[in-house]
């Protein structure tokens, strides 16, 4: 039987961590773009559109991510599309993060004092001008910290993609353990790698939040 050194374990995990990072990045970008689209659509203040988006957010925030992954993965094959685990994971995590991003950004827009809108109205600014020059710049500044903070949730969420067979960090850990039978050591390495990805993000979020606090 082949012998695994600690370095072998770590090296294989590091290789798998690439997929965790790539999946997180795609989900962050896809979710960010889609969440932005939702936020723009919602700012048109159409009752029907707002209701639909509210429903969308409720659904994706109210169902465990694991179920969303299952439903995407098996749902596609039900309607005749064979999607691989990779595609299903990207789609699923994108939808999931778009709902949260949208909610974060909407919250930031609504957190601005009503007086900002009123000042713009009395100065004769149109709705779009108010948004572009007054509301969005302030809301964006406010949203940076929670947005980065949520990216930690995305990274951790990618671990669930292992259940549909996508080989990322968690799945790789399981597979390696099946070969070496040293669960504590293997999963300690896995945990350490997640921590090394997430901790800098948490630090960044905290730093940005503090900076934002001082700026106000």
């Amino acid at each position: 039987m082949m012998q695994f050194t600690d370095w072998d374990i770590l090296r294989n995990l590091l290789l798998a961590a690439r997929w965790t990072i790539l999946l997180s990045l795609l989900a962050f970008i896809g979710g960010g773009l889609f969440g932005l689209l939702l936020t723009i659509l919602r700012s048109m203040r159409n009752t029907l559109i707002t209701r639909l988006i509210q429903g969308y957010v409720e659904v994706f925030q109210g169902i465990p991510l694991l179920m969303q992954l299952f439903l995407t993965f098996f749902g596609f094959s039900l309607i005749g599309f064979e999607v691989d685990a990779w595609t299903a994971a990207v789609i699923s995590l994108t939808l999931f993060s778009s709902a949260f991003f949208h909610d974060i950004w909407r919250g930031c827009i609504e957190a601005l004092p009503k007086g900002q809108w009123e000042a713009c109205r009395t100065l004769g600014l149109s709705y779009l001008q108010t948004m572009r020059y007054v509301i969005v710049p302030q809301a964006m500044r406010m949203s940076i910290a929670p947005t980065v903070g949520f990216s930690v949730q995305i990274v951790k969420g990618t671990a669930l993609a292992s259940v549909i067979g996508f080989v990322e960090l968690t799945k790789a850990g399981t597979m390696i353990n099946n070969a070496v039978f040293q669960p504590f050591k293997v999963f300690a390495f896995v945990a350490l790698l997640y921590f090394l990805i997430c901790f800098p993000l948490s630090l960044l979020a905290r730093y940005l939040e503090k900076k934002n606090h001082v700026a106000r």
Binding site: P113, G115, Q116, E118, A119, T122, L123, G124, L125, Q129, Y133, V134, P137, Q138, R141, R216
Partner: peptide, 27 residues
């Protein structure tokens, strides 16, 4: 009609000059 509020309602992300110039430029 101009209006001045109890809570000022200045735009905190703009300088004083930008606050005063915003509407003269845009409107």
């Amino acid at each position: 009609v101009g209006m001045v509020f109890q809570s000022f309602n200045l735009f905190p992300h703009m300088t004083v000059g930008q606050n005063v110039m915003l509407a003269t430029k845009l409107v």
